[in-house]
Design a protein around this nucleic acid. Structure first.
Lengths: 335, 335
DNA sequence: ATATTTTAGTAAACCGATTTACTAAAACAA
DNA sequence: TTGTTTTAGTAAATCGGTTTACTAAAATAT
């Protein structure tokens, strides 16, 4: 299988490869109309497709970006990726995806792979551990955008939910419906940005309402231990009347708990989940959730990255906050 | 930002770039131990990373594969991608993903992009429309693996569910529980492989049980019209006692219908869905489903592709069938 | 001591494009 | 007619590696 190169086209059209290259890049002013036509013919007849690798080598642009995230199985990540891919596709970029599994060494390996591959930019949901590496990239003005998580002191454009507001919406919805003992259920670790901020928002919102946020009511656990953690929470002398699940996975755990313990929602316990889940409408009762605009976030991240790639000048690094949206259903209403 | 090249390393180590290249490729027999050490030093001190693009150009291997699928938002696709990425990562390959949205011209565009980028192979959930393009690839012995869908007369390795068996499992489970009037709910178009085969399997299984498969009971519709289609189905003189949803999206529609019409499951209507959905356990009643081993399918697809990439010789193109698994829950039991 | 082999390395061609500097011929101006 | 500009193109360098063919010096064999 001999591949067709620019030289084959040049020969068939009876011109030099320089001219073919000009043709391929649309600089028709370097050739006559007849020549242009002959090249066009030759390209078609030979079924010629330029070798992007060779082009990239010379141009120092690969028209490819890398996306590093924890796990594409998380629905937030899936949506973000989809949005990124849409934007990139439209702009002629291709997307290499990397599941770093929140594993810093895997993340590092991927970053280096992507750089070796000369990708034009990277979008990441970063771990905190490779801060030095990211800092180095930032210093050499390498196009970089973060999503969902913020790394302190790094000053890199980040697209994320207004997490405090999201938590506040939950609290307000519950207090508006007369609930006062409101707990929060979270996965561990609680140090990553969205969890940290949501917990902050939860505390502040309670205080705003004149309620005190007791540490007892912040139930954190790894996923597998969440059932027992919930049991403890509900066994308190003053068990909560309502629980906010910090993300979709915690919410699933909460639903499992509710189901296994035959709790009536919202009678025995009101619940709200951050992250809209596909079956919120189908659950009995329908579940109140906070939706986050994952597609918008992905779209804006891609758009920002491509801007950075195109404009050589440094852009202001900033945090863009996206608005959460309360979807009120029956699980949080007055009992 | 001047990038460090092999020449910089060569200079600093006081050798030719050929020798550095040998070093980078682990062919240490071409140099003395001291030289080897000096190069190692130089690489470290300069923080040198070989440019993969340049290497790819010469080696004609990019260590990259492309994956073309309909939409990464479908949970089957997400799982397949994740499994592919895992395998590829382990083998040093990177993955470019392409959402073709079942749009043949988008699919074609992506295939050509990937080829221009010289990816070493492609995994696709193909549409039928680019059969000529795929045939051409197959002829030039280009590494190619299909997932989920089969294209007739193309003889390309394909990894897919044993769809007929999956449908049969549904029918058998329902008949075992005493149901006889069993309908099937499917999205349109019904021509794509999994849907086609599942419908076939449904018909055969009914016949095996001595039940006749009436066309009335095969309810197909695009997603948005599925509610009205279901209404029609249940308005038949002899409405079905049970419905099999052909995939997760149809199943969601069915659940919505059940909920809105306050049907009792399985009392008024027994239901089973092909594709295990995340909340099957949480629904009331818990939902019987057929799970398909999406991770295995992705893993095997990636493994097969990499084999094809490595071995130059032609492999037997074949269809590998994966086993469906019935997860029996309450929605299909005797009423 | 000489011939042969091994060791340690190098120079140059190459992968397939882009880009720069240059030019012959034609067109135009004075 | 001569000088200048424009048109239409080309040759060669380049991107950053890999690979092949070759060689000087050292080690070994005879």
């Amino acid at each position: 299988m001999k591949t067709v190169t620019i030289i084959d086209v040049a020969k068939r059209a009876g011109v030099s490869k320089s001219t073919v290259s000009q043709y391929l890049n649309g600089r028709y002013e370097y050739m006559g109309a007849d020549t242009r036509e002959r090249i066009k013919q030759a390209v078609e007849e030979l079924g010629y497709r330029p070798n992007t690798i060779a082009r990239s080598l010379k141009k120092k642009k690969t028209k490819t970006i890398g996306v590093i995230l924890a796990n594409i199985l998380y629905s937030f990540s899936t949506k973000v990726i989809r949005a990124i891919e849409d934007v990139c596709n439209r702009e002629g970029y291709q997307v290499i995806i990397c599941n770093a599994d929140d594993n810093p060494s895997k993340e590092k390996w991927y970053i280096e792979m992507l750089l070796a591959k000369q990708v034009d930019g990277i979008i990441a949901i970063p771990t905190k551990s490779n801060i030095d590496l990211y800092r180095k990239l930032k210093e050499r003005n390498y196009p970089l955008v973060f999503v969902d998580r913020y790394i302190d002191g790094l000053d890199i454009s980040t697209m994320m939910l207004h997490n405090e507001k999201a938590a506040k919406m939950c609290v307000d919805e519950l207090t508006d419906n007369g609930y006062e003992r409101i707990a929060m259920l979270t996965m561990e670790p609680i140090s990553i940005t969205p969890r940290f901020e949501r917990i902050q928002g939860y505390k502040k919102a309670l205080e705003d309402k004149g309620l005190k946020a007791t540490e007892d009511y912040i139930a954190s656990a790894p996923l597998k231990e969440m059932q027992t953690r919930l049991k403890e929470l509900m066994a308190l002398k003053q068990p909560p009347q309502a629980i906010i699940a910090i993300n979709d996975l915690s919410f699933m755990q909460l639903l499992t708990f509710v189901k296994e313990n035959k709790l009536e929602v919202p009678g025995d316990l009101a619940i709200i989940g951050i992250d809209d889940i596909s079956f919120a409408d189908l659950f009995d009762p329908p579940l109140t959730t906070i939706a986050q605009p994952a597609f918008d976030i992905g779209r804006e991240a891609a758009a920002a990255l491509i801007q950075k790639i195109n404009n050589r000048y440094v852009m202001d690094a900033d945090i863009r906050r996206f608005e959460p949206r309360l979807i009120r259903r029956a699980s949080s209403t007055k009992s």
